[in-house]
Nucleic acid binder design. Structure first.
Lengths: 161, 161
DNA sequence: TATGAAATACTTCGCCC
DNA sequence: GGGCGAAGTATTTCATA
């Protein structure tokens, strides 16, 4: 029951080589241009220019080291749904959530919960602090917390082809 | 209502310079050793050795380019909770979910939902396909899908100090 | 986009603190 | 042990076509 391949990404014209570069850089963000060049069969300057264009076009928004949370003392992960009250001060709510650095992800969602957050904290008391802080935010009516027992994988890339 | 600073990460001895390097590399994963050296006030070889040790110790697990999903045609994000049935074939379920590349994150959770997934697909029909595929997985009793309207931020780093 | 050249950076080594 | 300086090698980056 496989549908035909959907839209071919009309946003920017990303050809096969660009796609390949994106995959390589998602797999190893520190790969040198020379190494990338070898893998895609182009010269290093050509790769350099292509990657630069992908960055300028906003396709690549940055590069980051992936750090094991537990290794830096962040032993507890949780997903927190935010049920907002009638009073919707979206801007203020976002600011308040953004002020909590333990909120690593923030999604605006459809459904009974207006936002879902992924938070990472050192331990359960710190999770309690976070929940308390969120419940004090103006516009938050209630929260629903789901504790993550283990992260099977995270930030995986790759399309459904 | 601030608790005292919790555990100082007993896993590995990460000193202030290491912490600084981690932050710099999370902010710019392609920063050169020379640039990192300038920022932390050490020589390039010293930084090279420190980063190498952080990688060997598993503190840094990799480097990745951050790609705008919309720019590569992934316009729909959703969070899907998995309600598992009595028959718990954990290994088989994980394999089946892992076989779906659109499942970018997979968390084992406490609560009524045994897993929560973050999926990214091209469009709503592809989301429907994904939900159907998940519901066919042996051990999955029901799914609950929350569509993400917009991603406010994702993968933010930084501790709650 | 490729080539070649100059500047920079990476990486290993011995040495020092 | 951890960091520094210097050396050789590789890479980046610019010119040019």
């Amino acid at each position: 029951m496989r549908r035909p391949v959907p839209a071919p990404a009309p946003e920017a014209d990303i050809d096969a080589v660009d796609q390949q570069l994106l995959t390589l850089l998602q797999t190893n963000g520190r790969a040198s241009y020379a190494e990338l060049a070898r893998q895609v069969g182009l010269s290093a300057p050509a790769v350099h220019e292509r990657v630069g264009k992908l960055e300028s076009a906003g396709v690549i928004t940055g590069y980051t080291a992936v750090v094991d949370p537990a290794a830096v003392g962040l032993g507890v992960t949780a997903l927190i749904g935010i049920i907002d009250s009638d009073e919707v001060d979206d801007v203020g709510m976002l600011e308040a959530m953004s002020d909590l650095p333990q909120v690593q992800d923030c999604w605006r969602t459809a459904g009974t919960e207006g936002y879902v957050l992924k938070v990472r904290v050192t331990d359960i008391p710190a999770l309690e602090d976070t929940i308390n802080a969120l419940n004090r935010v103006r516009g938050v009516s209630r929260t629903r917390t789901t504790v993550v027992l283990s992260t099977k994988w995270e930030g995986r890339h790759g399309r459904s082809e």
